[in-house]
Every structure is written in structure tokens, then in C-alpha cells.
Design a protein around this nucleic acid. Structure first.
Lengths: 193, 193
DNA sequence: GTCTATAGTACGATAGAC
DNA sequence: GTCTATCGTACTATAGAC
């Protein structure tokens, strides 16, 4: 029997791992760090998970799920396609922290192991399709030009966000992120029919 | 006396470190790996450099310098501003390998240490200014609209490339990178006066 | 389920011979 | 300048008591 309000040690481990994966990536995060942050012992971690990789996959799915929910909310807020994609670009983010999902892609161990990469790939594949769908709806409704390459524009929007994180972290300045996303919004306006 | 053709052990260390930093990042690259790839012993590395961080800074400046030269070449190839920025977007790259400079920005140890972050920050600050200058010249010559926000567009172009790497690595597909850069080129066309 | 103890390996760095 | 030997620490994981 699991309580609905009390969080189990397992949940604390997953959340601590998700935080550390966000902050430090996979390779630079050690089981000891996760245990310390979640106030769990060695034994607890190895009881609930087979090892670092197993816990990381669970934590990555946790992070991707959270981000997916927040993204859905943004993409559903607004009536026109440009409003909805604009809301995605304007989502509340901490540019200096980086993307909790996208940052994992730089890790050699993550890309090398299909089990570790799967949650990341699934997230971006879903996101690409989701934004392309919103744009396609805009084309169908007559809001956007009929010759709009919705797949390419979706890639541009996502790349702008991911690249914006890189610029912000490199210069330690949130403004670098905003410059990129605002420029993307300006570019989207030209898709209007 | 240093020969002009024979590479010294120090150069081998720097090049091996630059490769590994590109492939694996800072935290996941160990001195032992660098020594093995450069066929140098422990003693050689610690004779020429004070430690891992010192060698890494030298290797990062080496990588940034190479990329800066290649980028200069691209930005100088073409007559119009759109051709020159387009050449930057179309530079020969391996999207699955990631950006040798941009990837370092995800490393917590790099961002935490100003000495390690400096080469990365300098590169992106230079790149941002360089692309903004090319666009500004396009505005001045009458090629681009006078109300063009050159700083924002430069950020969009750079973010597209950096984000394109993220998409390509996440999906293990070069096409994801090309979709983003081609969409950026389409967006740039709308800047025409 | 959680704890402590410990395994075996690799880490980054230093010492000292040559 | 380069080598081997070694330091002390941290790594990921397992064992076995409770």
C-alpha cells in the first residue's frame, strides 16, 4: 500500500537524481551525490534500482514528463497558431540552468547507450511533431501561408530554445536567451498568410 | 629551439585534449585518456601543464581558434550579407559530433570556473558581434530592412546552429540539424529591404 | 527496506630516478 | 623532458547484518 501524500524513499531518489542530472549531467553525477541529496543510504538506492543507469533512466523520464506537461499547457494557451507557438517560446524558463532534457544530449554516456538516450529522443520527437501540428493547423485554418514548411519551422523553434540556453550559459546572461527567442517570434510573423 | 614541422609532445597533448574535450566534455575526460591518446606519459603532461584544468584551457583556446578561423572564412565568402550569413549556416559540420566549443558550456565544472569558461564566452561574444556586423553592413548598404534588429538576428542564427546540434544528437539524425539551419535561412530572406 | 562495511577500480596529482 | 611508482580520494557496486 502506498500513501498518496507521503513520498516514498524511491520518489526522493528519483527527484534528487533528476535535479542532479539537470545541474551536472549524467557522467558528472555520482550515486553518492544522489544519496546525500535524497537523504537515502546506499542500500536504499540499490534496493530500488539496479544501479546508476537504471535510476537515471527513471529520473530522465520523470523530468521529460514534467517538461512535456508544462509544454502542453503553453501550446494550448492561445487561439491562433502563432500565439500558441509564441507561448512555447515565452515559457517560464531559467536560461542559465539549461534545459533539463536537452542538456543530457551532450553526455557521451547518454548518447552511447540507447536505454539512456531513449527518453531524450522520445521527448524531442514528440515536441517536433507537436509544434509542427500546431503550425499545420494554422495553415489549414488560413492563418499561415500554404507553402509553410511546418517541420522545418518546428525545428527552428526548438533549436532556438536549445541554442538560446547555450548562449545564455556561455555568456552567463539571460538576455542572450531572450534575444534568440524574440527573434524567432519575429520570424514566425512572416509566416502569416 | 622549436622545429617548425615536428610537433612537440606539448602540441600532441593539446590536440588530444581538444579532441577528447569535444567528444566527452571536461568532467568526463581524464588526464589518463589524454596521455594515452597523445602517447605521452604522466610526467610529460605535468611537466608542460600544471594540471587538467590548465591543459584544458589551452586545448579550448586551440579549438576556439580553429573554429574562429573556419567561421571567418565562411563569413567572408559571398558578397551580400545574406550570402555571408547563409555560408555560416551552411558551414561544413558534423551535427552528430556537436559543437567543439558550444558543448563545453553544459559542463558544470566549466561554467563554475571563470578560467575554463573564458575561452567559450570569448568565442560566442566574438561570433555574436561578427554576425551582427555582417547584418549591419547589409542594412547600411540597403540590402536589408532598416528596422532589422541585427543583434537579435545574430543570436537567432547562432542559437539555430547550437540548437541544431542538440536536435541532431537527440535523434541521432543529421537531417534534424539541416531542417533548423534551412529554416533559419528562409527566415533571413524576410529581412530583405 | 535500510543500514554499515568493504570490494576493486579509476581519479587527479606528486615524487624522484634517469 | 620523460619515465615509473605511489599517494590519498572518490568512484560504482556488492555483501550481509538488522
Amino acid at each position: 500500500m502506498y500513501s498518496r501524500v507521503m513520498k516514498a524513499t524511491k520518489d526522493h531518489l528519483v527527484e534528487a537524481a533528476a535535479e542532479l542530472l539537470w545541474e551536472r549531467g549524467y557522467a558528472a553525477t555520482s550515486p553518492a551525490m544522489i544519496q546525500k541529496r535524497s537523504h537515502a543510504g546506499q542500500g536504499s538506492m540499490y534496493h530500488h534500482f539496479s544501479g546508476k543507469a537504471d535510476l537515471a533512466v527513471t529520473a530522465m523520464r520523470h523530468s521529460a514528463g514534467q517538461l512535456r506537461l508544462a509544454t502542453e499547457t503553453a501550446l494550448d494557451s492561445g487561439t491562433t497558431a502563432l500565439e500558441r507557438v509564441g507561448a512555447y517560446l515565452d515559457m517560464e524558463r531559467n536560461p542559465l540552468a539549461g534545459c533539463r532534457v536537452g542538456r543530457l544530449v551532450q553526455d557521451p554516456d547518454v548518447v552511447a547507450d540507447d536505454r539512456l538516450r531513449a527518453p531524450v529522443e522520445e521527448f524531442f520527437t514528440w515536441l517536433q511533431q507537436r509544434i509542427a501540428d500546431v503550425l499545420a493547423e494554422g495553415v489549414r485554418s488560413g492563418e499561415l501561408r500554404p507553402d509553410t514548411d511546418v517541420a522545418a519551422m518546428a525545428s527552428l523553434v526548438i533549436a532556438t530554445v536549445q541554442g538560446g540556453y547555450v548562449l545564455a550559459r556561455a555568456q552567463q546572461d539571460q538576455a542572450a536567451f531572450r534575444r534568440a527567442t524574440q527573434a524567432a517570434k519575429s520570424a514566425l510573423v512572416h509566416l502569416r498568410a
